[in-house]
C-alpha cells in the first residue's frame, strides 16, 4: 500500500471542491487528487501515493544519479580489481527486465 509511483499528468480539472487529474502510468490512466500539488501542470511527472500526487519530479535532478556513478568510479580508481561474485549478481539484476 505504501508504494509511490511516478506518472505523467495528462489532464487537470476541478471536480466539485477538489482539483483532480488524470495521470498516466506506462499507458494506464488513473484518477489522482491534485490538491497537494497546486503548482503542477499538464505534462509534469508527479509521484502518486494512494491516489494523491505528493511531489513533482524534478527533471534536472533526475539524471544526476548517472553522473554520480561516473564520479565514484573515477574516485575509486581502476576497474580491474573487480571483486569476485558480481557475475551472478549481474545475472540476477538482468533477470528483472520487466
Amino acid at each position: 500500500m505504501c508504494l509511490g509511483i511516478p506518472g505523467k499528468l495528462v489532464e487537470l480539472r476541478q471536480q466539485g471542491e477538489l482539483v483532480m487529474g488524470k495521470v498516466e502510468f506506462g499507458g494506464i490512466l488513473k484518477e489522482v487528487c491534485m490538491a497537494y500539488l497546486p503548482e503542477a501542470e499538464v505534462g509534469d511527472y508527479v509521484l502518486v501515493h494512494v491516489g494523491f500526487a505528493i511531489s513533482r519530479i524534478d527533471e534536472s535532478e533526475a539524471a544526476e544519479i548517472f553522473e554520480y556513478v561516473e564520479q565514484i568510479e573515477q574516485m575509486s580508481g581502476e576497474a580491474d580489481d573487480e571483486p569476485p561474485g558480481l557475475r551472478t549478481a549481474e545475472t540476477q539484476a538482468e533477470g528483472q527486465g520487466s
Binding site: 511516478p6 505523467k8 502510468f25 506506462g26 511527472y45 519530479i57 533526475a62 544519479i65 548517472f66 556513478v69 565514484i72 568510479e73 574516485m75 575509486s76 580508481g77 576497474a79 580489481d81 573487480e82 571483486p83 558480481l86 549478481a89 549481474e90 539484476a93 538482468e94 528483472q96
Partner: peptide
C-alpha cells in the same frame, strides 16, 4: 516506464556496486 526503467539498468547498477566494493 520513464523514471523507473532507467534506474534499473543492469550496467549502471553493476558499475555502482563495483565502485562500492573498491571503497569499503
Amino acid at each position: 516506464m520513464k523514471y523507473l526503467s532507467e534506474y534499473r539498468q543492469p550496467e549502471a547498477v553493476q558499475r555502482c556496486a563495483a565502485a562500492i566494493h573498491r571503497r569499503v
